[in-house]
Design a protein around this nucleic acid. Structure first.
Lengths: 230, 230
DNA sequence: GCTAGGACATGACAATTGTCAAGTTTGAGT
DNA sequence: ACTCAAACTTGACAATTGTCATGTCCTAGC
């Protein structure tokens, strides 16, 4: 039972925004609208994909549990972002699990609905590819970060991506748990704490309540400088 | 001027093998067939994508140069594998560069050809999504490795994926430079050397000529065990 | 056959990160 | 207001990895 506001968010999502209104209406009409509590599972790794998911509110994490039991966070999505496109259209098992990390509203588009619409208009395929490419690109960026930057530099880049403004002093508010941030950046919570300590000398001040300020230019310079110069 | 053998390899690629023969013929007829020397660039990061690429022979690496100048290897492709699908169909710039790391034969399918065929048959879109999903999946697997495994464990998994057999003693042949393997696994060449040393006690013996043997079961057990137990 | 350069191995050392073990802070529930 | 658990910080220590330097092996080119 979606509100108009929720529909508006869905329409603005990368997945749907370039499609003709008529198709979007069709999809929204047949979508499933659900709420999730913090910690609730949306789907599990190896489960077969039956829908594409669009986050309308809150935060959702995608993660993998390795054979050793360690959790690796793959990505974290919020309002207007979608995931599971490539998997849903092929009836293959999810390579990751999805869990709400805050109270969430999520729209599910059943894959048969998407597939049948795609047969009518191949443009749908392009939209799905667009969303999938965005994910590919963000994974590639993450790989580069992990392979070529230190922990503190990854934190600096994470803060940069959080802010709307792109230069000068900026207010920052961490969107979720530091434990989750640590996972997302591929480190232990203790290392994240130390990374924040290292950023203090360059003017980053974020207290326990997860808010603070930082200078974007200084951060960018730090993130892009050679690790061996420090 | 493709040989029949090359065409056969192209037909077996993940990208084309599930398409009707008629479409494959159309694509092969309009494809561009090229050779590359070791070290030659196939395309550069930020360049606009004009084609999808299918490797017919040799090895191609995709990599990014970070702002600091460090190179991060994203993936390495060989015979029957394709790349650039999601980018080519959207006229966006490549997020990575591509370079031949051995003498190569590569087939290029111009994106307009693919796009126009896709309008006739949406099934093409599904094939492209299939290939794109494979890349997504492999990037996710790589992220998990980097975030949850030690260097030596990543090497063990790399060796596992090289072999056809899945248990017992196996012959292994490293497909390319150790420098490149190190990049692919997110470490320095020196660390790779040390990782190989650590695998010696569990029966992995690979000499300078890049060939040797290893026990798959022992390797799998090593790769999946908790790093802290060692 | 000789030579030069690149790939690779190894040792010593420094920097980074994980691990373990305290302590503090915070917030939800009583 | 009190309590408890979880999130977070910090310190000490160990393990891993990067860096630098050196030496060996292999190969392409002369």
């Amino acid at each position: 039972m979606p509100h108009e506001a929720q529909k508006a968010i869905a329409r603005q999502s990368l997945l749907l925004r370039s499609l003709p209104d008529q198709h979007v209406d069709t999809l929204l009409r047949q979508a499933i609208w659900r709420q999730y509590d913090r910690g609730e599972t949306i789907f599990l790794q190896e489960e077969e994909a039956k829908a594409v998911h669009v986050v309308l509110a809150g935060w959702v994490k995608l993660f993998r549990i390795s054979p050793t039991g360690a959790e690796a966070v793959v990505s974290v999505f919020t309002r207007g972002e979608s995931f599971g496109e490539a998997v849903a259209l092929r009836n293959v098992p999810y390579p990751v699990s999805a869990e709400a990390v805050s109270p969430c509203e999520v729209m599910h588009i059943p894959s048969p609905v998407l597939l049948s619409l795609m047969k009518e208009d191949p443009e749908i395929g392009v939209s799905i590819l667009a969303a999938t490419f965005t994910h590919l690109h963000s994974l590639v960026a993450q790989l580069e970060q992990l392979k070529a930057q230190t922990g503190a530099q990854r934190v600096a880049e994470f803060l940069l991506n959080l802010c709307d403004c792109d230069s000068g002093q900026c207010e920052v508010e961490l969107p979720y748990d530091k434990m989750l941030i640590a996972g997302r950046l591929g480190m232990k919570p203790e290392s994240l704490s130390r990374a924040f300590s290292r950023l203090k000398p360059i003017g980053v001040r974020i207290d326990r309540n997860h808010a603070g300020i930082a200078d974007m230019d200084v951060l960018r310079n730090y993130a892009e400088s050679d690790p061996s110069e420090k």
